[in-house]
Design a protein around this nucleic acid. Structure first.
Length: 284
DNA sequence: CGGTTTTGACCTGCGC
DNA sequence: GCGCAGGTCAAAACCG
């Protein structure tokens, strides 16, 4: 059903659009080659079908919302099939905090991680040990810098998504928003991960060293650790002070608690641990 | 040549 | 109902 040749929008709604990004603002990073000319492509084909599919998805979402105690049958596995239907559950009332959204029928973890980068670095990439595939970029209203959308590329069925955008206040800070939990092991190889999080779920901390100096960003808000919420060392003028803070008993306790909590929630880890313990025990 | 990125078009929810 | 804004799709370009 794709229309051959150039297609021009004829509806007023389409005519309003001057580009892919919101309000036609100069969105995205320029193409790799300056002289790149995009040829008109054929329209996305089965629009009616897609519309119908979306409508069906919306209907099923409504039904899910209505039947509050109807548990998700397949967990996150169905989430990727419903690419556009998660937003209502994801939007955070406290967007700056990592939190676990426990909705009526679906549990979506959302967390934010700030990472210091070189201000001249225009690539919206946050190395967290996972493989991400970029599927979109958009300029948002409240921030002049574009927001990049990533999906976990390691496992096709992994529902985790990541939004990366520079901080509006400090362009040298990248804010990564993770949605969902990985349903696979972290593919991290040695030396690739500057983060202390190597298991499913959002990254609670990240450490990076770049030309602008070392950066340690910690996000321990998931469990509301006592007093320790977000420690962002990026603005710390004194690295020694930072190290003292990191080495403090309170901080280490909170970190250990956070890690222990994360590990004990991982059934694979507990299973493996139990198996290892059993191995060490004499035959019984 | 296949995987990834870019980016214009489209969809949907929400506020008015 | 309309417009806005965020999110996603997917063709084309790019790159290893």
């Amino acid at each position: 059903m794709s229309r051959p040749g150039p297609w021009r929008p004829s509806s007023p709604r389409s005519a309003r659009r001057t580009g892919g990004s919101a309000r036609g603002s100069p969105t995205c990073t320029p193409a790799r080659s300056p002289g790149r000319v995009r040829t008109p492509r054929t329209r996305r084909a089965p629009r009616k079908q897609r519309r119908r599919r979306r409508w069906q998805l919306a209907e099923s979402r409504k039904r899910n919302r209505d039947s509050v105690d109807d548990p998700p049958s397949s967990g996150d596995a169905d989430a990727d099939a419903d690419a556009s239907g998660r937003a209502e559950a994801v939007e955070s009332p406290r967007p700056s905090d990592a939190f676990e959204f426990e909705g009526s029928c679906r549990r979506i973890k959302v967390s934010r991680v700030c990472t210091r980068i070189d201000p001249s670095d225009t690539s919206l990439t946050v190395k967290d040990g996972y493989q991400w595939r970029k599927y979109g970029q958009k300029v948002t209203r409240d921030n002049p810098s574009p927001r990049a959308y990533f999906r976990c590329a390691f496992a096709p069925s992994c529902p985790v998504k990541k939004k990366v955008q520079r901080s509006a206040e400090d362009s040298s800070v990248l804010v990564a928003t993770y949605e969902g939990e990985h349903n696979h092991q972290c593919p991290t190889r040695a030396g690739e991960l500057p983060s202390c999080a190597a298991r499913g779920g959002p990254v609670p901390c990240s450490i990076s060293i770049n030309s602008s100096g070392p950066t340690i960003t910690l996000d321990l808000t998931k469990n509301g650790a006592d007093g320790v919420r977000v420690l962002d060392a990026t603005g710390a003028p004194d690295l020694k002070k930072l190290c003292q803070e990191v080495a403090s008993v309170e901080f280490r306790t909170a970190l250990v608690e956070q890690m222990a909590s994360s590990l004990t929630r991982d059934s694979k880890f507990t299973d493996a641990l139990a198996a290892a313990i059993l191995k060490q025990l004499p035959d019984y």
